[in-house]
Design a protein around this nucleic acid. Structure first.
Lengths: 247, 247
DNA sequence: GATATGCGGATGTCTAGACAAATATGAAAG
DNA sequence: CTTTCATATTTGTCTAGACATCCGCATATC
């Protein structure tokens, strides 16, 4: 068949169940069956839905409003209604490892090292890592993936003096933890994290596949080794509509 | 003035701010200033609000819907729209004292002893306090108040054999903890609590100022002393729309 | 006195249509 | 090729009216 919805059963009128509830649950079913994937998660327009269900536009809007209320979809004026990707919890405990926690959420996390360069330390990283002026640091750019989709963009800074051979490690692994281990750092924990949000750059919009007008959530975190000495300064940018930080 | 809303400033039309948002915030302000107290927390009818703001009924309903969404009011079909009294958290930890927790919630708790009688123990209390048949118990009826409003009705049972002079203590205090202390019980903790709900009696409707059709939430709890011996059996009835139990 | 019945008033649902605001798209201009 | 502009599309807001459903209350009936 050419149209998935051509055989839509008519709504039950005057049966106790309201029309808008029936529409909402029909759409909810479609969403959960991923039937809007072909339209990149976009729902039919309100006009199309009025034809599909043969009701007034306001009745469709009532249904969409409840779906938006429950977080299942979001409406964007002038663009359409879109299925919300599921929100990923991002816990910020001292000893929590993101990938381990994601496994608990039945998700697959992965990453890709985009770049690894040696450069003079800049202001924030220098303060965080307590380095002297003009010290050399590794800057590692990494894209985090959840279920294969771009999820985060992170810049990690490490002292070259402390980890002289860290750069080579990233030729064989995409994991920060692995690379640090091969450089002699067995364990670390989160020391301090600051969280804020800002509008995205054009690059972030493209790389994180951000919807128009959505901010990026930024975390700046300092990790320390078992002696409490700072080992890493990281700035991570997240698609704010796809995750929430849990403290 | 005879009408609090007679001088309602007209809504700003075409000023960027939507009418329903202006209506919602005007009503929110009225609610927070307690201006519906004279009507027992009932808002004007939708028809009256359309006249007050000079808009269509649907526009008023849009505003009311958002207020209901945020929990500020509740609508009852065929009756009206009512201000929700704020919900009080009632934690059920072993060592938690209600009044102390309420202070943390910026509320004032108090109580009033309604009655204190000596009588033969009944079934539930006898099981809970492990007393023999026909043993005498104190039954203390107490009304709990939060911010001066009736909040709970509780029956407390204590063994007369264990606390022979407890009855006199309530002539000078309204606090259960105080009275027990004067009878030699310095400390106790919560042992077990069962929770259920049922329709209220006429007396409970009156004393707790229950809205029509609302159930009472009932807790049956056993407190024990530091040796683990049961000291108190209590049945408390709460207005379920004014509190939630936190376990 | 207790029980039905009916009525008015309240909120709930649905339809119909208009205009506003934001967006997407393609044509025209530089 | 890029920018600007007009236009069509899409969602947002508001109005108008009809009927349904639920509630409270007065009245009638047994």
């Amino acid at each position: 068949m050419t149209d998935k919805f051509i055989e839509e059963p008519p709504l039950l009128r005057g049966s106790g169940a309201t029309l808008w509830r029936q529409i909402a649950s029909a759409l909810e079913e479609d969403i959960k069956a991923d039937r809007f994937a072909a339209m990149d998660g976009r729902l039919p327009t309100e006009r199309e839905l009025t034809e599909r269900f043969d009701v007034n536009r306001h009745t469709v809007r009532r249904a969409l409003a409840t779906l938006a209320e429950s977080g299942l979809v979001r409406t964007e004026q002038g663009r359409g209604v879109f299925v919300n990707r599921e929100v990923v919890d991002y816990p910020l405990g001292k000893r929590v490892r993101f990938s381990a926690n994601l496994s608990a959420q039945q998700r697959i996390s992965a990453g890709r090292i985009l770049a690894c360069v040696k450069e003079p330390v800049q202001r924030d990283a220098r303060t965080a890592l307590t380095l002297r002026k003009n010290a050399q640091v590794w800057r590692v750019e990494r894209m985090g993936l959840v279920d294969g989709e771009p999820f985060s963009l992170a810049s990690h800074y490490f002292s070259v003096a402390r980890f002289p051979k860290l750069g080579q490690a990233f030729e064989t692994t995409d994991s920060i933890t692995e690379a640090l281990k091969s450089s002699g750092l067995a364990d670390y924990e989160r020391h301090e994290t600051r969280i804020y949000a800002r509008p995205p750059t054009a690059d972030e919009i493209r790389r994180l596949a951000l919807p128009r007008g959505r901010p990026v959530l930024v975390t700046e975190s300092i990790n320390v080794d078992s002696d409490g000495k700072p080992t890493e300064f990281g700035i991570a940018r997240f698609a704010a509509d796809r995750m929430q930080i849990v403290v």
